[in-house]
Design a protein around this nucleic acid. Structure first.
Lengths: 203, 203, 203, 203
DNA sequence: AATGAATGAGCTTTCATTCAT
DNA sequence: AATGAATGAAAGCTCATTCAT
């Protein structure tokens, strides 16, 4: 009500429910999770969820959409000041695995549960994911133009390979809850392979 | 029907149902597919499926188990006579993508639908997958011992990265039903990156 | 706004909501209509409706109660000056069908939607309807006493028959949105049949 | 299994469920009745109902369709041997009210509950009802051709008036569970009014 | 008086699985 | 071994109603 209007009292149910859903989906899985589980976790009534999200699927997709925005913004920020394309590859990998580590439940939902939804995999076009990964294709193309990256590799092919490698290692990290698995080492391995694998051979 | 055939007269309903399930799961997705759909496709009664498989999940896992056996056997055969570790990487990649291309419905089930099953991802230990991928770790280790492969890379880390790269590209191939996407090119890209990425730098 | 107006400044939300409800119920049907639809149509908040009506059923019954008052008053006025009982039958029919024609949405609600409510049909005693129809029974009785109407017919039985005939024809008119259906012809048919049907045979 | 195959063991679930539904719908009303109520009444599981009927609406419509067939067949039989059109009117009325009396629960469903369904009233074309009532229009037309029935009345208008009169009286009979209301008297009243109302005035 | 965000009870329908034949 | 009719648990979603502001 003040001029500044920080709206501290507004609980932002949207955010509240979204975060609760991430925790619940990560723990029980999307299909096993009931709407009432999410409602309980968020401390609201079942029906309240439908005031903020169209349905259960929409809740899952909203997690993806909204979190990918943050992920993409963070990636752009992480790449600021890194000019060398091959160094950018390393930065990308480190940033990605750092996010997986820092937001493990979210990662679990995005990596595993999102793939549950046939809607997502087969009907939905993950535009946000393409924007995120597109940065890698740009890096490769820039490296090719700068003469550092071999030109016999298609940037988009390399992009999917890079994403696949990171994704699978993240998956193993998530699944290997009790085994040792260093994401820093994963970042170094992936960037190590791709940096050398993509660079022009020394003459 | 030959004398060598151990079970000549048995129609092998087990196999019949399994193949029907692959087609149905690939087409409709595991969750959307009904047991009665599989039964119809196989030309048997619903109840008959339960004489050969414990439940719907077991049907999915059986597809994985039995097909991975064939895949692994094929891989071993493909690698026969290829002695150079780096060349073995190329052979592996080509073999893998060839299988995806030749058994597209099976690939679709294994790549997408199998991941749907929380049971599979979180509880089940895909021993057969590890055996298959383990070949790659062996190749890397052998290369390291032979002095061709850099030793700062953990063979198992490399294994997951390699699998992830191939898997994601296969996924894109499967999803990109109408776009052009060459699996041969994918094999060359992946092996191109990994062969150079794993090899020792030339002095 | 006039001096005679007892409630000049009051916007009369009650009336506002009632009229909105008639339009909404007629258009979407009572069950399909949401309280929020009525609120939107009336330009008030959902909760406001509950300041004027006990619940959704009460809203429907209030439409009946209040509109039947007007209908009954109009009928009495229409019958003023008509002394011949058989002529009164014709007047009744013409008045009734005229109302259906002039207040089609209201008629739709009263004819179709009101019957939807189990509450209305099985628990509620439609006193107002009986008053309205009672006029017909009175007409018949008066005709019997005057010697114009046959006495082997129970006035109340005749009343229900007369009402049923008019009601069904109104229903057909309402349902037959696109077909030709003249309510004037309906009035003539009904009164034609009942006037002759009720009158004493000519000796 | 015998040659005669009376199939006494076949419980005919379809019929069983239909009859149970009539009882339940009549007692609780269509909307208030739960599928599980019908299942309980029929002594089957909830799911079984869906093996025989598409959904709850279909169950209601099936009652109408199947029972109207019987009603129509019975009407035709009742009219056999009655040649005089005006006498046929009386036969029709008596048959109709007899059915209401003998199948009171069915009548209750058809008269009251069927009208609950917006689907039925607004979308569904009650072909079977038209066939039933069409007999009356035929009777009127035949009477006009034979010179017994006045020609200033449209047979279809008369048909709706006749049906409305009978329907309303049936409704009152059904609603007036505890009051005295003779359906025989109703039949005589309706046919009395319509026979004289439709016949040509004596010269 | 007015609001409208929040509530939570309630129910149809699906479909994996069973078991009498 | 094979059938397929029958089962019944399970849950997403709606919407009339409430009440704190």
């Amino acid at each position: 009500m003040s001029a500044a209007d920080a709206t501290p009292s507004r609980t932002d149910k949207h955010e509240l429910i979204l975060e609760a859903a991430i925790r619940v989906f990560a723990q029980k899985g999307f299909h096993a999770a009931r709407i009432s589980d999410v409602a309980d976790e968020a401390g609201v009534a079942d029906g309240t969820i439908y005031l903020y999200f169209k349905n259960k699927d929409d809740l899952l997709l909203s997690i993806f959409e909204e979190k990918m925005d943050l992920l993409l913004a963070g990636l752009r920020e992480a790449l600021v000041g890194v000019t060398d394309p091959l160094e950018q590859v390393r930065t990308f990998a480190r940033y990605h695995f750092r996010q997986v580590q820092d937001h493990r439940e979210l990662a679990e939902v995005l990596q595993i549960e999102l793939r549950l939804s046939n809607k997502f995999m087969k009907e939905y076009r993950p535009q946000k994911l393409w924007e995120y990964l597109g940065k890698f294709a740009e890096i490769v193309r820039a490296g090719q133009e700068a003469g550092q990256v071999r030109t016999d590799i298609d940037p988009f092919m390399a992009m999917w390979a890079f994403f696949g490698a990171m994704d699978e290692m993240s998956m193993q990290f998530i699944l290997a809850k009790h085994r040792k698995f260093s994401l820093d080492a994963a970042a170094d391995t992936v960037s190590g392979i791709f940096i050398r694998g993509l660079s022009k051979e020394k003459p």
